[in-house]
Every structure is written in structure tokens, then in C-alpha cells.
Amino acid sequence: METLTPILAAAVRSGTPILYATLGEILMEKSGITNLGLEGIMLMGALSGFVVTLSTGSPWLGLLFAFLLGGCLGLLHAFLCVSLGSNQVVCGLAMTMFGSGASALMGRNHIGVAISGLHSFPLPGLAELPVLGRVFFNQDAMVYLSFALVVVLYVYLNFTRPGMNLRAIGDNPKAADAMGLPVARLRYFYCIVGSGLVALGGGYMSVVYNKFWAEGMVAGRGWIAVAMVIFALWNPFQAALGAYLFGGVEAFQLRLQTAGTPIPAPLLMMLPYAMTILVLLIIAVGKGRSILLRAPAALGIPFHREERD
């Protein structure tokens, strides 16, 4: 256990950016909008968070700015997909390309600069718990915030009126519209907030986790988050489980590399990706077609009030 706890604590840290992005995507998908641009949004969040932290010296301002910029990108996605009814898959690809290009251009003078970022502190009371204390409650504030977010989102989605409305517009926008819900406006709202959370995950990478900026530093985590949503079956708690599982594979893989294992690094680095496919497969085989029942029924389908079919 003594050797395992540092790896588990590292797993929580490296799973946190994926967790934020996954929670953001869950919000968007619950409202019926797929956003495949997570990779691009996270990169923009990572860059903006880093630049603002660097120039103001405040990591919290940096993270706030990352959230706001993510919201702007979510607004763009919502405009194209909600108002104009564009193809959501292609729109997400465009977002990924735009985000990776724009962050590379704007971040080119910030490579190799370090910031001090956020520091870990033990959470009073909980940090003394055996094992769990060291793994979960000796982290930075953003990790604690993500715990709270998981609980809040779970309660919001399942036990509140607005949460039920959110599920309604994603499952049956026509009925929700007849009930008097402003479907388009709500979808805008969840796209903006969801993309903000996604960008916050990117900001965590540069401001807290790495404390530097590097071109393309998100390295596929955005896409893994998209997969995580399915793994989690749109449930925030399962999203946390999935994110830490992947963080665990990553931390374990890093540990093996520094320990000088005979296994070549590229093969170890395949692990998280291979595991994503494996996990999706296990879920699909285990649940059969019922996975479709858990997905928001109107996911990816544009909704226009005027159209009747």
C-alpha cells in the first residue's frame, strides 16, 4: 500500500482534466447536443488559462478566463448546431482543428515558460483517513472542486426540476416544447456551461497539472473524455470512476517508464487508448442494445419548432 498510494494520488490528479471535460460533455449531450470539439476547446482553455495566469500571477483568474473562453466556443457550437442545425460531428471536428491551430499560433511565444500554479493542501479532517486521505484529500483546490461538481451535477440531473427539464429537451424536444420549455435557449445555455467546464479541464492541465504550456499538450484527452461519457452512461459518478481509471493507467505507465521497464514506451502509451476501446466493448457487450436506451433519445438531432414530420 505504501508504494501504491502515490500512484493512486497521481491517478486522481491526471484524471481530473478528463473528469471536467467529461462532466461538461455530459451536460451538453443530456440537452441533445453532441460536441466532438473537446480536444480543441481544452487546448484553448489550457492556453488561455496559462497566459492569464502568467500575466496576472493569479491561477484563479487564469482558470476563470479558461472557463469563459470555453463558454464562448460553446456559444459558437450552439449557434451552428442549434440555430443553424449544422451537422454536429463535422462542427466538432472544425472546433478541434480551429482550437489546435489557434492555440498553437497564440502560444508559440510561451513555450518553455513555467508558472507556480496551484498547490496541494490537505483537507482538514478528511486528509487523516487511512489511504483515502492521501489519495483523495491531499490534493489541490481544483480537485476538491471537481468532487463537489460530481455530486452537484448528479443531484441536479436526477432530483431537481431544471435537471428534469434538461433531460426532457435531450430526450424529446418536441414534447418539451409543447410543455412550454424554451428548447433552443436551454440548449444554448448547456452548450455554453458545458464547454466552459471542458475548457476548465484544459486550464487544469496547463495551470495546475503541468504548470507550463506546450503545443498540443492535451494529447487526445478531449477525445478520451468523449468516450468516457459513453463509459459513464451519462452518470457523473461513473464519469469520475472512468476518469480516475484512465488517470491511473497514465500514472502507472509513467511510473513504469521512469522505473526503466523493458517494455518500450510506445507500447505503454497505447494503454489508455486500447483501454478505451476495451471498456466501450465491455459495456456494449454487457448491456447489449440497452445502451441506446440510456443515451438521450434526441442526441445529435437538430430541432426546429416550425418543422413537422
Binding site: 472546433m95 482543428m97 489546435s100 489557434a102 498553437a104
Partner: peptide, 10 residues
């Protein structure tokens, strides 16, 4: 950066 042209693509 080479990626600059991907802004235009996006």
C-alpha cells in the same frame, strides 16, 4: 507553427 494553417481549415 505549421498548425497555423489548421486555423484556416477550421
Amino acid at each position: 507553427p505549421v498548425a497555423t494553417s489548421t486555423i484556416l481549415q477550421g
